[in-house]
Nucleic acid binder design. Structure first.
Lengths: 132, 132
DNA sequence: ATGGGTGCAAATCCTTTGCATCTGC
DNA sequence: GCAGATGCAAAGGATTTGCACCCAT
């Protein structure tokens, strides 16, 4: 399933994996350009799609109009700041009671394969700003 | 917080609330045009934003590049078909153990206000198609 | 009369695509 | 030599915005 990655794809994958934030395509592009100066934005988009398809990285969308990428592929959850839009990985493993998932599967008739919990709230930085 | 809605805004809100799917802006536009023929797409976008801001409706994004709206504002969860992209409300109330949420809040330092569980899987229709 | 809402069209932004070229095998 | 990858520029599509106009207050 996973094909061998060429140098551009390696550089893109590395950039996404090393990023602690969840970079957008153009952030990845900016980063990768230092390692591969000739690369074009279109290739970054193409490579990101391939990496998602092949399961190397995950795509995440929330309220802004850009698509973000996450090099962290194990199942995990996200916390989203409703004030600034920041998207953080939740660093603890939240395991849902299986009966809840079963109930949801039954209710929707879907064959569930994965899930993601999205937590909404105010991040520490925004909380500070709001207090002022 | 909620201001009085004018006739256009009422029509948009009604359209979103009555829809069982999760309509996009242009689907809302198409629907609303029958009740308010003169309305423009830009106004639909403007009104949808206002309605979201004022808490009348929710905005949902997932993998496609359009933004969808949900007239269902009580906390609830979504099931997303990984084959066709369909987005369904989960018709059962999934209550998470409070200690899980607390652990996540502690780990992220965020002041959590809400959450949404996103379930990924294959919807019944797509499951049928895949079997063939 | 006055401030906010509106429609239209143009602009904007992210993303995708066409295509000629280049690359590695 | 060939299939796939690439860069560039142009196209595409969803959303936003500028602006003159209209409406209700």
């Amino acid at each position: 399933m996973k094909t061998k990655l060429n140098a551009n794809a390696q550089a893109v994958l590395e950039s996404v994996r090393l990023s602690t934030s969840h970079p957008t395509a153009s952030e990845v592009y900016d980063t990768v350009k230092t390692a591969r100066p000739g690369i074009g934005l279109a290739s970054v988009y193409r490579i990101l799609h391939t990496l998602v398809q092949q399961g190397y990285i995950q795509e995440i969308r929330h309220s802004d109009d850009t698509c973000r990428y996450d090099g962290h592929i194990e199942r995990h959850d996200h916390a989203i700041c409703t004030a600034c839009g920041a998207l953080l990985d939740v660093p603890v493993n939240i395991t849902l009671p299986p009966d809840l998932l079963q109930a949801a599967a039954d209710a929707t008739g879907m064959d569930l394969s994965s899930h993601e919990l999205r937590l909404y709230g105010v991040c520490p930085r925004c909380a500070l700003v709001q207090q002022q």
